[in-house]
Structure formats: structure tokens, C-alpha cells
Design a binder for these strands. Structure first.
Lengths: 125, 125
DNA sequence: ATATTACATGAGTATATAGTTATATAAAAA
DNA sequence: TTTTTATATAACTATATACTCATGTAATAT
């Protein structure tokens, strides 16, 4: 079987690592409907300014989001909407797992579903 | 805008975290064409037995892979092939990024492409 | 029963990273 | 110019986690 080399695995892993952080997911989700500046994202996420700014710097360095400085504000925006497909797939996986766990935890599934119904967060298509 | 609650973000992040590790990606990719036992995965991945076993335990606990003990051997297998869609999307993203970086690093892109052509690793559809 | 094979796991270490606090920088307002 | 507003970043701490080495456990073979 053909193998990706170690550098390729490392790159893919690093990409997933960016998505492996709740605050970053929240920020990305906050950018779903268009650009926002740092203050808006701080308010939206409930994080501190310093922490949100750091996450934005990381996401920007990795080209997952773009940065546009206007005046004293910095507006960030999603570069490629396909990123939400990734989250949608994961939500789908988790929803399946949880439904198989026999509805002990209703909260998450209903969040995802109301989600899907309202064509809101993370849905795939 | 509707928000997923913090527990939901945490769950999604934890899922991505599982994919944010080169050795685990290698193992998952090694399981692409069917179940393998631990020794086979150790050989295939180049990792130590202890380390591979730990990663398998993690992936299994998260239900990304299944475990079937037969005799003294333990066979692991992918539970849902959709997981490769995730990796395919990321490969696609990275390939785009790298092609935009003007082909300085040809290795990775060509790996992903020969990949796509040969219908091998990580491709989406 | 003993040895061997295959796998899992505990202890310990090293590193990475998320978060906080304080400060730096830079544009705009006064 | 001085102040204020918006953002970035350095220093530090705490926690998580990947790895190694050693050992435990369980099924098979001798």
C-alpha cells in the first residue's frame, strides 16, 4: 500500500490540531456569516481579548482565516467555507454515536438537529 | 445567531484532537483496506508496540475503530469510512494552500495527487 | 506446568499549548 | 500633543499528551 510520507501526516495533523480547540471552533463558527472584528469576536465567544487575539493569529497564520486591518480595527473572515464541511461531518459522526448511545444525552443531539433544521451551525450541505 | 453550547464545542474539538496526531493518522490510513492486528500496525507504522497500542486504545475508546480479539491477537478496523472524507477534505485544503505557495514544495502535492489518481489515500470521493 | 507470543498498561519524562496578566504598538480622537 | 481605543504580544503558569521503558495479563504452544 502506498504511504504518505511523515511530513504529509504531520501537516494534516497540524491542520486538525487547529480545529481541536473549543474556543477556535467557536470563533470560526462566529465568522460563519461574515467578517467580524476582534472586539465582536471577544463579545461573541466570551473569551478574553488576549486569548481571542492569539487564536485569531494562529488561524490567520495557517490561512484558515484572513485578516483585514481597517483603522484601529482588524476584521477577520473565513477563507474557505469548506472548513464548515469538516465540522459538519464531525457533528454527523458524533450525532450517530450519541444516538447509538440510546439518547442518554439529549442536549447535544437536539442542538445539532435544531441546527440542521434551521440551516445553522456546522451542517454539511 | 444560534450557538452550539460549550459542551458541544468541546466534543467536536475532542474528535478533531484524535485526528491531530501523525501516528494516529498513519494507523487509520493503515486500516483503510481492512482490519489489521497490532503487530501488523506496528510494522506498518514504524512505531513501538506500546505506543501503537495506546493509540489504538484511544481510537477504540472513541469508537473510531473497532476491536476484535481473536486468540492472542487483537484485530482493529475502521468503524465508519466517512472518517476518510475528513482527511480528504484536509488534504484538499492543504493542496490548495501549497499550490498557492507556488510549488516550492512539490513532494506533498504530488503525493496527494498521485493519491487521488490512484484512488488511494485520504481522497474524498 | 512452563514458556512463548501478543497485547495492554502503569510510571515517569519531555514537550506543547491554552490561558492569564501585563505591556507594547498603532490609529484615531480630543 | 495627549489620550483613548483596538489589537498584538511577551512572560509565565498550569495542564495535557506523546513517548519510552518496564511490567502485567491472557491465550497458545511445548
Amino acid at each position: 500500500m502506498m504511504q504518505l510520507d511523515d511530513q504529509a501526516y504531520a501537516r494534516i495533523a497540524k491542520y486538525f490540531q487547529l480545529l481541536a480547540e473549543p474556543m477556535r471552533l467557536k470563533i470560526l463558527n462566529g465568522l460563519r456569516d461574515g467578517e467580524k472584528n476582534v472586539s465582536e469576536l471577544v463579545a461573541l465567544s466570551g473569551g478574553t481579548q488576549a486569548n481571542v487575539s492569539k487564536h485569531l493569529t494562529m488561524l490567520s497564520a495557517a490561512k484558515l482565516i484572513g485578516r483585514d486591518a481597517r483603522g484601529t480595527k482588524a476584521y477577520y473572515s473565513i477563507v474557505d467555507q469548506q472548513i464548515f464541511d469538516l465540522c459538519g461531518l464531525v457533528c454527523g459522526q458524533l450525532a450517530i454515536q450519541m444516538s447509538m448511545e440510546a439518547a442518554a444525552n439529549e442536549t447535544f443531539i437536539s442542538a445539532v438537529q435544531s441546527n440542521t433544521n434551521k440551516q445553522h451551525e456546522w451542517e454539511t450541505a
